[in-house]
Amino acid sequence: YIGSKISLISKAEIRYEGILYTIDTENSTVALAKVRSFGTEDRPTDRPIPPRDEVFEYIIFRGSDIKDLTVCE
């Protein structure tokens, strides 16, 4: 799965898409590269977040912050 395009939804209901870079089982983290944030879209939340235009080089997510993770390709 390393190198695959991943769609990830955080506990804050924010969806991110990026390339799976590393999975650290010891620290329970997932790192994505070339990440875009799509905001909360239409998911119900107390704090709606708009999508962002910039592409983040890397984002490291803690396993406890991840609600859903899907391989896109």
Rank of each mutant, 00 (worst) to 15 (best):
Y1N: 04
I2S: 08
S4L: 04
K5H: 12
I6P: 00
I6M: 12
S7Y: 08
S7F: 15
S7G: 09
I9H: 04
I9W: 10
S10M: 06
K11W: 02
A12R: 13
E13K: 03
E13S: 08
E13R: 06
I14C: 13
R15P: 00
Y16M: 01
Y16Q: 08
Y16R: 00
E17Q: 07
E17R: 04
E17M: 10
G18N: 02
I19W: 11
I19Q: 04
I19H: 07
L20D: 03
L20S: 03
L20F: 08
T22M: 06
T22D: 13
T22P: 02
I23A: 10
I23D: 03
D24L: 02
D24I: 01
D24Y: 07
D24G: 07
T25A: 10
E26H: 10
E26W: 06
E26A: 06
E26R: 12
N27E: 13
N27S: 14
N27A: 12
N27R: 11
N27F: 08
S28G: 11
S28F: 08
S28W: 11
S28I: 15
S28V: 06
T29C: 11
V30M: 12
V30A: 04
A31G: 12
A31N: 06
A31L: 12
A31R: 15
L32C: 04
L32K: 00
L32D: 07
A33Y: 07
K34D: 15
K34Y: 04
V35T: 03
V35C: 03
V35D: 03
R36Q: 07
S37H: 04
S37Q: 11
S37T: 07
S37F: 10
F38E: 04
F38Y: 15
F38L: 05
G39D: 03
G39F: 04
T40L: 04
T40N: 07
E41A: 00
E41G: 06
D42F: 13
D42S: 07
D42N: 07
D42V: 02
R43E: 02
R43V: 01
R43K: 05
R43G: 09
P44I: 14
P44C: 11
T45F: 08
T45L: 01
T45R: 03
T45H: 10
D46Y: 06
D46H: 09
P48F: 10
I49E: 14
I49S: 13
I49T: 14
I49L: 14
I49N: 05
P50H: 15
P50T: 08
P50L: 11
P50C: 07
P51S: 11
P51Y: 08
P51C: 08
P51R: 06
R52K: 10
R52M: 12
R52T: 09
D53E: 14
D53Y: 10
D53M: 02
D53F: 04
E54S: 09
E54R: 12
E54I: 06
E54V: 13
V55I: 11
V55G: 06
E57M: 02
E57Y: 03
E57D: 12
E57F: 00
E57W: 01
Y58I: 09
Y58K: 14
Y58A: 12
Y58P: 02
I59C: 13
I59F: 03
I60N: 15
I60Q: 13
I60K: 13
F61M: 08
F61L: 08
R62H: 05
R62I: 04
R62T: 09
R62Q: 15
R62V: 06
G63F: 11
G63H: 11
G63K: 15
G63Q: 15
S64K: 10
S64F: 08
S64E: 12
S64T: 09
S64Q: 12
D65W: 00
I66R: 00
I66Q: 00
I66M: 06
K67F: 03
K67N: 00
K67M: 04
K67A: 09
D68T: 11
D68Q: 09
L69K: 03
L69F: 13
T70R: 10
T70V: 09
T70N: 10
T70C: 06
V71L: 11
V71Q: 06
V71H: 12
C72H: 11
C72Y: 06
C72N: 04
C72A: 13
E73F: 03
E73Y: 13
E73M: 06
